[in-house]
Amino acid sequence: MGKSHAELEGTQIVEKKQPRSLLNEAIRQVLRNRLALISLVVILIQIFMAIFAPWIVAHDPLAQNLSATYLSPGSDGHWLGTDQYGRDVWSRMAHGARISLFVGISATALGLIGGTILGLTAGYFRRLDGIIMRILDLMFAFPNILLALLIVAILGPSIVNTIIALSIWAIPSIARILRSRVLTVKKQEFITAQRSIGASYPRILFKHILPNCTAPLIVVGAMEIGTAILATAALGYLGLGAQPPAPEWGAMVSEGQEYMFNAPHLVLIPGIVIMISVFAFNLFGDALRDALDPKTDINK
């Protein structure tokens, strides 16, 4: 034969395919998508605002100045204007980003942890599947906002309680997505192969099934952050989230609507920012899904 099989195939492969991790590939794909790139920039700006809020604004978000109320955007020293107490809208928006992102990310993180545990258990252990899924169905049947209201009403309105309420809100959908993924992965031959070499349940579950579920988790995580930001605003608007005078976007809309006709910017600015922020997370989630799917699709 002359050349050995290994030599021959080995050289072929080295030449044509550089090992590249899935995440790397996903990032490259996202960067190629223009909408995704814009949404990523918006998200990064938001994160920047949140982290550096105290340094990028000139005014204390809570400092009242009753001599300069209802200033419209573009005024001297207050480029987004001031509110009914003369507080600087820009500095309130920037500090509001802290609250929104903090609540959004931590609620999603908690939701991901809870959802992952429930989803993995339901997907892998047939016997628990029925019970867990029926409980989740029950949670689905309950209007989300009502559930959050109920939790906050019981625990009392505060940011921490908002996070708890929103993470519970996020659990059912995350768990359900993960469960269906686990059901697919579980049927793959490489899982049977693991069983045939005698691998234990935890090993199969955490070393083989979970890593193959990361793509949908990342996607649903990005989307849930958007949802959570929206829900934070909704709770804030209803007066059940962050308490005044904390600069929370939803609460700002709610406070501003009284003055909607003489100072429309008090409603419009936080409203538009909420919209852009949620939109960015959803777009980014979509792009991630497209980027992660083909490479990680084990059915390919």
Binding site: Q188, E189, F190, A193, Q194, N212, T296, I298
Partner: peptide
């Protein structure tokens, strides 16, 4: 294709 863990 299916009998090896794609992530390993």
């Amino acid at each position: 294709y299916a009998s090896l863990d794609p992530r390993q």
